[in-house]
Amino acid sequence: MLKKLIRHRALPGFGLSMGYTVVYLSLIILIPLAVLFLKASTLSFTEFWRTVTDERVVASYKLTLWTSFFAAFINLVFGTLIAWVLVLYDFWGKRLADAIVDLPFALPTAIAGIALTTIYAPNGWIGKYFAAMGIKIAYTPLGIMIALTFIGLPFVVRSVQPVLQDLDTRYEEAAATLGANSMQIFFKIIFPAIFPAMMTGFALAFARALGEYGSVVFISGNMPMKTEIIPLLIITKLEQFNYGGAAAIAVVMLLFSFILLFLINVWQWKTAKKQQMI
């Protein structure tokens, strides 16, 4: 342990890089976000509490949370599957499939929103078949979920993919020596190994979905109590020149995301450490 510390000290640039990181982080992230807290603190505590626990606001926390959760969950299942297919199998067009996974990162969210609404509206390419069955997609929570699934997809795939790649060779060896059937191998060896990565992807997709605005606002329909997402409520507050109220709701969302991301980072760090010890 001591040896490790000393060895680490031998590398140069810790003070420089750390100092720069902290200064830059403060300038770009911390100071701006601190202003948000400052603005929220212009409200008295009771005002703050009333704002963030208002019926409408609570309804939209719920909506934002459960649509984000399910979207992240869909991504967890299908994202892992896609990563699996991309790593383990060879097929025609694999490189292309691999490349387009990142599209939601690169495509502007507003464009994604407009395109998705065009497709899933009752007269859209896909929406019309569902409309014929009496199912509405655009302008319902289902539409919100589709938009959130779209923007979160790359997170899970890109988290799981490298781990699977690492496992690839080991998996073959294990299969050969143990003679175990594929189900056993999956649940005993592969799943535990990729689970942390899956969770990271899930958490990032979830966190990203919580804050999403551009793609959702077109497809959600914005009905109070039903399809109103949190960022829209923030805009509603601003429209009444109520900066304090907007900041209050923003602060709640921010704290929630921070805690979520922090727990994942700690948990990941711990599992990484465990693996190192083995």
Binding site: L25, I29, L30, P32, L33, V35, L36, T109, L204, A207, R208, L210, G211, E212, Y213, G214, I230, P231, I234, I235, L238, A246, A247, A250, M253, L254, S257, F258, L260, L261, F262, N265
Partner: peptide, 18 residues
């Protein structure tokens, strides 16, 4: 690391607002 991740999760509207 979590602070670095924050912009992923912050709503773009808030990012502009600050």
């Amino acid at each position: 690391i979590t602070l670095i991740d924050i912009p992923f999760a912050v709503s773009p509207v808030i990012a502009g607002l600050v």
